[in-house]
Amino acid sequence: MKLGLAIDLDTCVGCHACAVACKEWNGQSLMGGAPDYDAWGKAPSGTWYNRIRHYELEGDPTYSPHRCGSHADTAGHEPLSKTINVPMSCMHCEEAHCVTVCPTGASYKRAEDGIVLVDPSRCMGCNYCAWACPYGARELDQDAGVMKKCTLCVDRIYDEQLAEADRQPACVLACPTHARHFGDYDDPQSKVSLLAASRGTQSMLDDLGYKPTNAYLSPRKPVEVKTELPLRQGLSDKAKAFVNRLIQL
């Protein structure tokens, strides 16, 4: 099995629901917490396994077929732009260099399902794995001194005590736009495989060779409506020429 997430950049509105649900589930879970620092103080911070960042993309014609708005440049062209929200957690990479660099063996990738985990009872908090991760997926738990990261909710997805439908990562369950999907990429018929194949995915630092398992579904091309209604005659005539139809109540 190759378990992972498919995250839809077409529908993610950047609401941070997944990040908070993740924090809630993992903050106090058996896998160890995601603590907060200076929670009510000057500069609150904390450990998160999932973070959402927001970007603007300008000048990519794929996503802005219409020049619109009142925001013209000197040449009179309005920028073609788009806002993109990108939630990021561990990609559960196939070539998880974060695992190979770990000297203690605390970081490991499970053979059976490909989930990359940290064993807190072995981790010495050297940060080396975080250095090796291109995607910013690992954050040190400063209270416990051990590295933390997305567990793919391994403590939910196999929990037989949960109803079948609940055996999903917390972030996937929470996501209000259903922009997050979970499944097995080894199974070509799984929802995530089908989505990735049909929608196309973003390549994110692929040249580093980590082979991320998670897929970011590319934004769809904006829908265009081809109008085929007849334009009627000129306006002033039209108002005069309005024809009543015989419509019986």
Binding site: C15, H16, A19, V20, A21, K23, L173, A174, C175, P176
Partner: peptide, 9 residues
Amino acid sequence: GVLCAKGSA
């Protein structure tokens, strides 16, 4: 079934 960030928090 879904929940917003405020809900989870």
